[in-house]
Amino acid sequence: MGWRWFHQWGSPRWFYERAGRWQLVCGWLALILLVAGSLWGLGFAPVDYQQGNSYRIIYLHVPVAFLAQAMYAAMALCAVVLFVWKMKLADVAMQSIAVMGFAFTVLSLVSGAVWGKPTWGTYWVWDARLTSMLILAFLYLGAIGLRAAIQDPDQAGKACGILVLVGVVNLPIIKYSVEWWNTLHQPASLKLTEKPAMPASMWVPLLVNILGYYIAAAYLVLGSMRAIVLERERRATWVKELIGRA
């Protein structure tokens, strides 16, 4: 007992068994897409006439930055599911996404900074995007830290859910205010704007990599969720049967 039955997604066993297969599919798919997309972007996409080869960082930076933001929204969605349907799997997802999302946010910050060095001559500028990404990293850290501080997993999950919901309401406000602040302080020349007209030979590999990173994120989240489900359900009969048999 304990897990409220709410069609299949309420059943940890169902999830654990299915997710193993999904994870495998996602893993291979992500590997193929990422290897193809990255090689394409690194070796075959034409050189940018302004930035030279350094622009090739976007094939990692842009997908990861997309993911960093999308995963916070996904976390908020999980929080809604947790509160409305009391589905504990949503809490597990929230826990996994927080860690993965933080990792991707840091990766996008670091890749942005390294890209900035040859492009702007400095690793860090208080650009609107960089700044709001930094704040996003702190929001992720908050969700991770709050969960770590509360012993009871159910309670930790709900506390995190409240925090994430408050955070997601604030996120657009934070973004707009940071952008406004940026135009207030910064000369426009340092603004990071992508050139709108990007030839297909440049954006097709980018698309491949975006897809690849999204699937890789799914792969990572599923893997971490399986481990957490097993850990939380360690006293359940199905877990004992499953592992006792193996």
Partner: peptide, 22 residues
Amino acid sequence: TPHGVYVWPIYGLGLLVIGGLT
């Protein structure tokens, strides 16, 4: 040239993060 020092470590780091999380 002249950006290999910037590009490659980033892809290495990406690999490291995904591999590490796995």
